[in-house]
Design a protein around this nucleic acid. Structure first.
Lengths: 229, 229
DNA sequence: CATTTTTTCGACAGATTTGTGACAATAAGA
DNA sequence: TCTTATTGTCACAAATCTGTCGAAAAAATG
């Protein structure tokens, strides 16, 4: 399984290094920035799976970073855990309103933060936490790299697996062919858009059961979506 | 998702370039003009989603541009944020009276302006921010690209979807055929006006339910409007 | 009531978009 | 090395959508 990618935005160097070390040793891939604008750039370049955001950083404030992350389509759904020094109620409230998923009040133990991160990831993108995702009657176990539907194991190729996993992480949402290319094939892949159609067909075939409805919805002139049956 | 279109009216070239760059990198589509009359022409050609209007521009004054935008049916309801250099109370009051939606006092940070723009757009056109819109008994989810009425999913073609979405973003308002052509088909589409009628009919058919009233009102010799049931 | 204007409706051919099977190239595994 | 899977593209078929007409219906006008 691929290591969850964290983006840590923290200008206290000592704390940042400590956390970086602890998370790395727990199997996370961590990148750090002390500066809000830089962090936003890093997030834009390579979308992280979760952002740890200090509320009190220099330059662009934490709340603003949060807003901007939410506003950009690519990072709009990345979970954010804010690290706040203040006990101040309204800071937390404002944070959660702005779209943070959870907060941790300083001082905190690395262990506590690890637990929160794991919890948020489990809730938002179960596959990253190594947990089985279930959408409708389809179950996907990212650790075993196995997919089953109504108890029956499905045989499914690598690309179709990634495609299905992506869909299951964002059920009901419509994705254009180019969005799917970016998400499943990687940004900048120079692949024909129509190729997506072919893989959709292969995926449909792979997850088809005699008496089950096709859970993949074609949205004409827009793209495809996975609808839980 | 289509990028929100902004029209920036600002004669301070340096500021204009800065803003243009920042907004572009946030996913907006920006056109700029330093001149009031030119700006009005641009707005007429391709209706923007929001206008950023400097109050103190050369030639036609900001307040006049604002008035004229409000007077033209096509741009009457486009939100306007005015950029005012003065702290002067009466300038802001006059602006809001003339029909501006919000104001930002110079000097301001691009960040602050971004926040205002986002807030105004969210308030005025939720679908641009990916929120579901609800008009009467019809619900439209732009993310899932799905329309339902009284809980029942509707089957609806691409053009009818765009048409309905536009109507739902501006309920109760009457639009002429040429306004609809501009908004739904795109400016400069060389399509027969009568064609709108046909798509209205198709939309009516698509959203019809046995026991429900037709929510689309025909306004003879003027156009069509969506009336929440 | 007859006339004029405007809108609705059904039909249709052409255009777009999507589904599908086949195929060569490449990668992976035995 | 030899087999077997997987991948990305095509070309063609199938499905769906589009823009226009012209006739019929409805609404205003006088």
């Amino acid at each position: 399984m691929s290591a969850p990618k964290l983006l840590l935005v923290e200008d206290d160097t000592a704390l940042a290094e400590l956390l970086e070390y602890r998370f790395a040793s727990e199997g996370y891939e961590v990148r750090t920035s002390a500066d809000g604008d830089e962090a936003l750039m890093m997030a834009a370049e390579d979308t992280p799976d979760l952002v740890l955001l200090d509320w009190m950083i220099e330059g662009t404030s934490g709340i603003e970073v949060c807003r901007r992350l939410r506003r950009d389509k690519a990072t709009a759904h990345v979970p954010i855990i804010m690290l706040t020094a203040r006990e101040a109620e309204d800071d937390r409230v404002r944070g959660l309103e702005t779209g943070a998923d959870d907060y941790v009040t300083k001082p905190f133990s690395p262990r506590e933060l690890l637990a929160r991160v794991s919890a948020v990831l489990r809730r938002v993108r179960p596959a990253l936490a190594g947990e089985t995702i279930e959408t409708g009657d389809i179950k996907l176990d990212p650790v075993a790299h196995r997919v089953e539907r109504r108890g029956r194991a499905l045989q499914i190729g690598p690309t179709e697996y990634r495609l299905l996993k992506f869909f299951m992480e964002h059920p009901r949402r419509v994705f254009s062919r180019s969005q799917l290319l970016d998400a499943v094939w990687g940004t900048g892949s120079e692949i024909e858009e129509r190729t997506v159609d072919v893989h959709i067909r292969r995926l449909r075939k792979a997850i088809a059961l005699d008496n089950a409805r096709d859970p993949i919805r074609t949205v004409r002139s827009a793209g495809y979506a996975l609808e839980p049956v």
